[in-house]
Design a protein around this nucleic acid. Structure first.
Length: 812
RNA sequence: GCCCAAGUGGCGGAAUAGGUAGACGCCCGGGACUUAAAAUCCCGUGUCCUUCGGGACGUACCGGUUCGAUUCCGGUCUUGGGCACCA
């Protein structure tokens, strides 16, 4: 009988679905294992190769863990709110709701055809009112705890998508969705106070099991820097060259208070309020205003791409160095950002590269206060002894920092301060397809949250959901929905017309999978206690500084208000590489060069596709997609099928010829798929699916050479391979053993079966390989030295190096 | 500019507490079976030289440590990713 993958795969896929084979149990006696891959953003184009690359590993792990006796939760769901779906619906001229439904249908069919062992009973979409009810509920909690507020601020705005974006959504000044350059606009927006969670998020980064380089990029994004805020008094020229002190003081943030004696000028951002406030005191106001306007016209990209330092002195205003009491000039310069620190700096040209460039250009004095470089040639940013610095002379940098802060603090001129690069999260979008804000705007009561019984606040059905430049979302047009009464005082009021960003629904979805049908709570406490955190969370690297941080923020908040009992959302995170096209570009929905995974399944079968994509390369590295080599996987599956012809159906033993190879193969799979959580991080060598598959092939070669496989060997072999190629192994298992392989236990390997008594070791002469000799394990070194000399035809040697059971090197 | 990761046959990739480089597979070549082809099976396959015994070279490049380096150290080049005037 030939291997007919089409029929076999269809048969098992239907059976798994009908029987709910992979549905997780709540409260099982088995140990729990929660494995999750970032859920799908469904689109009408169906799944792409990136999905297969991202999901196949977690799928293998889910099946493997079940065979190892775990109660595995491997859920599936849809992240369907947001710009991708809405832009697609606009393009196709259909309603986003039906676009979402259609896409989910397509995805469901396609994922089924890959044989993924999801628990379909827990499926939901972020667009289901029964789900976003609780997204809104969490928002209300954030609001009630003072972590959601509306304010006017400078935000990133994408003119093409007609909406405000978060910093995370506009990394590098580019809209994450349409790749257009974003503009900075002043707008009234809803913010989530993510910045106030900076420390807690840094703590979470320390605790999660994640590669160090990815932790670094997260820490970098949070951007903690410790330093001090220092107050500089200001003075202006009064009549007759007399100076008078101004009422306002200039506050700056610095990480290097030790260099205070080297401050030779000050610089403020073009948007700094000081300019407006003391306009009358600025002699060259025209020039200053012209410069500020010019700076404002540049977008972020231009401003940072042009590294030439520019600026204008504020003629008439001086600052007073609190350490030296000397007066120094104040500049307005666009290398100072209003959004960081206080929007003003103390400039130390001797020890800061940017200040050095500026000072050189404007001929400002450069003072050395830390010994170690030549500040006339370049800024010295290293360590060293303090000089020219009065009370902190002779100290090292760290000691000097502490002393000068303490000294100024007594005069209330400095305080130790920590700053973060991460900003609060602009949380509203002027678009239709998102969760409505459960907020009523009342003239009398201000912002009033909907009460729990009014949730979900459903998105109204409207015909025209096209965004426009008015600055309002399409929901303002839904008058019947917008106009309402204040839940507090009852007078006429309006609803917030913006919607939440697509990251809202994904910021807590892993919790809902624990209890997806609960109508009374976002998730029950009993289920939270049973399932706890996600044991393994897999997905793309690009989410490390975006979704992962949002998720960490929401989870931390829910923990703080005692809504969840565990502090960390995810115990371990692994990031998969990308699938690239031949030219090395990212392959995906947007590039239009995608290969349809369903065609690969039609030609080769799902088992073959799964095997191929895992065998192609390392999980964490980018892989260039090719069908070259898939024949190897196809040939291998034919060989697996042909085992039916050579199995010794009444031999329940393990033959001595196969024993070692069998145990080796099991060991390789057991250590190469996923390590037990008790294995130390540095000792792990898991996620090595390609070498595990090589192990399957090696065992096949051994079996093929001897021309038979015993029934027991076949049983163990099929179970070990089942997570990778579930259809074919289920089919053969059923036909030989009349049982469902899904209920079996993963075989155990026996280390003692892997030990050899006689081994071959290499003999080297002066480090060059000269052949091998056969030795007994544990044989005396004298005897081995003699064998090695004999092999080389030598009588004596200057020195013989013998590394037990590894190598002999002879020196003459 | 700063930070991180990587560079191994014609190709995808193995092997790093330093110890037989190229596992496993693809492609390719030769053979068996066949009227023929496909499928399948067997053999070969890093490069160069060879008197067919073997020899020399070889893990981006240069240098170092070592009996021994793909692995460790210093420097250079290339590719990919992240951050980007963050005070």
């Amino acid at each position: 009988m030939n291997y007919n993958f089409t029929d076999i795969e269809k048969k098992w896929q239907e059976r798994w679905l009908a029987n709910g084979t992979f549905n997780a149990e709540d409260f099982s006696k088995k140990p729990k294992y929660y494995v999750l891959t970032e859920f799908f953003g469904p689109s009408g184009k169906g799944i792409h190769l990136g999905h297969v690359k991202a999901f196949t590993p977690s799928e293998v792990i889910a099946r493997y863990k079940r065979l190892k006796g775990f109660n595995v939760l491997y859920p599936v769901g849809w992240d369907a709110f947001g710009l991708p779906t809405e832009n697609y619906a606009l393009k196709m001229d259909i309603n986003p709701k039906s676009a979402t439904q259609d896409s989910i249908k397509i995805f469901t069919n396609q994922l089924t055809r890959l044989g993924f062992s999801f628990d379909w009973s827990r499926e939901f979409s972020t667009t289901d009112p029964s789900y976003y009810k609780w997204t809104q509920w969490i928002f209300v909690q954030l609001f009630k705890h003072g972590l959601a507020y509306k304010a006017e601020g400078e935000v990133n705005f994408c003119a093409s998508c007609q909406t405000v974006l978060s910093n995370e959504d506009s990394q590098g000044g580019i809209c994450d969705r349409c790749k257009n350059t974003v503009e900075v606009r002043r707008r009234s927006v809803w913010y989530l106070k993510m910045k106030s969670y900076s420390e807690k998020m840094l703590q979470a980064i320390n605790e999660i099991d994640l590669k160090d380089n990815l932790k670094d990029s997260q820490r970098n994004w949070v951007g903690k820097s410790e330093g001090a805020e220092i107050i500089f008094e200001l003075a202006s020229k009064g009549g007759k060259d007399k100076t008078e002190k101004l009422k306002d003081k200039l506050e700056v943030f610095t990480t290097r208070p030790d260099t205070l004696y080297g401050v030779t000028y000050m610089a403020i951002a073009p948007e700094h309020p000081l300019i407006k406030k003391y306009a009358k005191k600025i002699a060259n106001l025209d020039k200053v205003i012209a410069y500020a306007k010019e700076a404002a016209a540049k977008d972020n990209i231009e401003r940072s791409a042009d590294k030439q330092k520019t600026g204008v002195v504020l003629d008439g205003i001086m600052a007073i160095n609190p350490a030296t009491q000397k007066q120094i000039p104040v500049f307005v310069a666009d290398y100072i950002m209003m959004g960081y620190g206080t929007g003003a700096i103390m400039a130390v040209p001797g020890h800061d590269t940017r200040d050095w460039e500026f000072a050189k250009k404007f001929n400002l004095p450069i003072v050395e206060v830390i010994r170690g470089g030549n500040v006339e040639l370049e800024a010295y940013t290293g360590d060293g002894e303090l000089v020219n610095s009065d009370i902190i002379n002779g100290l090292d940098v760290e000691t000097a920092k502490a002393k000068i802060i303490k000294h100024l603090a007594t005069k209330k001129l400095a305080t130790a301060k920590t700053n973060y690069k991460m900003q609060d999260w602009p949380f509203n979008r002027q678009r239709y397809w998102g969760e409505p804000f459960p907020i009523v705007i009342c003239e009398k009561c201000g912002f009033v949250p909907c009460s729990d019984k009014d949730l979900p606040l459903e998105l109204p059905k409207i015909k025209d959901f096209t965004p426009d430049a008015s600055g309002n979302g399409p929901l303002v047009k839904a008058l019947e929905w917008i106009e309402t009464h204040c839940p507090k005082c009852g007078i006429k009021a309006v609803r917030e017309s913006d919607t939440m960003p697509n990251w809202a629904g994904s910021s807590w979805y892993w919790l809902r999978f624990l209890d997806p049908h609960n109508q009374n709570e976002f998730v029950s406490q009993e289920k939270l206690k049973y399932w706890g955190a996600v044991d393994l969370y897999t997905g793309g690297t690009e989410h490390v500084t975006r979704h992962m941080l949002y998720a960490s923020f929401w989870h931390n908040f829910l923990y703080d208000i005692k809504a969840v009992p565990h502090k960390l959302p995810f115990i371990r995170r692994m990031c998969n590489g990308l699938i690239l096209d031949e030219s090395g570009k990212k392959m995906g929905k947007s590039s239009g060069n995608a290969i349809d995974p369903i065609e690969v399944i039609n030609t080769y079968g799902a088992d073959c596709f799964r095997l191929h994509i895992l065998f192609m390369g390392d999980y964490e590295f980018n892989t260039i997609w090719t069908l070259e080599g898939i024949n190897g996987c196809s040939n291998f599956l034919k060989k697996v099928w042909s085992l039916l012809d050579i199995v010794k159906k009444d031999d329940n033993s393990i033959s001595s010829t196969h024993e070692k190879a069998l145990h080796q193969m099991i060991k390789r799979a057991d250590t190469g798929i996923i390590a037990d959580s008790n294995v130390a991080t540095e000792d792990r060598a898991d996620f090595k699916f390609n070498t595990v598959i090589a192990g399957f092939m090696e065992f096949m070669n051994v079996v093929k050479k001897s021309g038979y496989i015993t029934k027991e060997e076949l049983r163990q072999y099929l179970i070990v391979m089942n997570p990778f190629i579930p259809h074919i192994t289920s089919e053969i298992y059923e036909s030989v053993f009349s049982k469902d392989i899904a209920n079996e236990n993963f075989p155990k390997f026996d280390e003692s079966k892997l030990v050899e008594s006689t081994i071959e070791i290499p003999v080297q002469l002066l480090g060059k390989l000269k052949g091998t000799i056969s030795i007994e394990v544990g044989e005396a070194s004298d005897s081995i030295e003699k064998k090695a000399l004999a092999h080389l035809g030598l009588a004596t040697a200057k020195k013989v190096i013998y590394v037990p059971n590894k190598i002999v090197n002879v020196i003459v």
